[in-house]
Design a protein around this nucleic acid. Structure first.
Lengths: 153, 153
DNA sequence: CTGAATCCGCATTGATACTG
DNA sequence: CAGTATCAATGCGGATTCAG
């Protein structure tokens, strides 16, 4: 995680302090509190998880692996539009986090199969729910977007 | 969506065709089929949804809005590290897709409140499940990553 | 207060060529 | 077959400034 550290607020406050003021945010109204569902630390990890699953290819790879081991080249065939580079990189990421297993057979020509680990399968379940949500709301979301776009034409 | 269209396979096949060969992928073994859980069209929309929810800030904003309407400046305070640009942009995206409502009060100084729509709340529910998954597997994932990293030091 | 507009560095990604 | 290496381009995201 690339921690930028200070954002909008911090910078603004530092400016005020440079101007000789202190206790800048003393008598402001209720600070709304970050979020009811997770603390800042959890938020970081949620983002890490989303970085893992929320990128362009991870979900498609996981979905393709759901039926059992698949070879590298077959993944390339099964996932249209992916480049070798991204396929390799994403697989490595997933493997690093323990979601995917890599098995290389010492044959010639070489054969490498990728499969979901138990952890990966548990994520598949969760991701499928998100996918279901997407499918269910698809038309509704598109309608909203169209309305918004035409209104701001 | 920036459709690159053709990927690894298409390009390779086109090359073969240019060399005068045809029916390149005729007698290859079983094509593994894209994915059992969705078709190519669904995959696109799932990716759009992930683009919406999988970016750096959307989830944090949605989580912060879960307790009710929040003002623009309070969102900036509540979400550490976000810049004005990204706050505005992300809110606009969410609003465009119908996940967030924007209410501007004609006062001076101006006041604008953002809140979750029903659609947004339903996404919150789904996302919270993913968050729960993250929290549950956090240590396991970290352990995998550490092992992988040290092994490839 | 709530943004919009601009500039710009840098990370991500894709295309291509090459290797064991 | 299963990658790696390298380069180029795109675009995200941050900082800053301006505006209503």
């Amino acid at each position: 995680m690339r921690e930028s550290g200070k954002g909008l607020v911090t910078v603004a406050v530092e400016k005020e302090i440079r101007r000789g003021r202190t206790n800048v945010r003393a008598n402001v109204r209720q600070i709304p509190g970050p979020c009811a569902h997770w603390n800042d630390q959890d938020a970081d990890f949620i983002r890490e998880t989303l970085d893992l699953v929320g990128d362009k290819w991870s979900v498609l790879i996981i979905g393709t692996l759901s039926d059992g081991p698949v070879r590298y080249s077959d993944l390339a065939y099964a996932i249209p539009g992916i480049s070798q580079r991204m396929l390799t990189l994403t697989l490595k990421q997933l493997q690093r986090s323990g979601l995917v297993d890599r098995t290389a057979y010492a044959e010639v020509p070489p054969r490498v199969e990728y499969s979901l680990t138990a952890l990966g399968k548990s994520l598949l379940t969760t991701v499928l729910e998100l996918a279901a949500w997407s499918a269910d709301r698809q038309t509704e979301i598109r309608r909203h977007q169209d309305t918004y776009d035409t209104r701001n034409a």
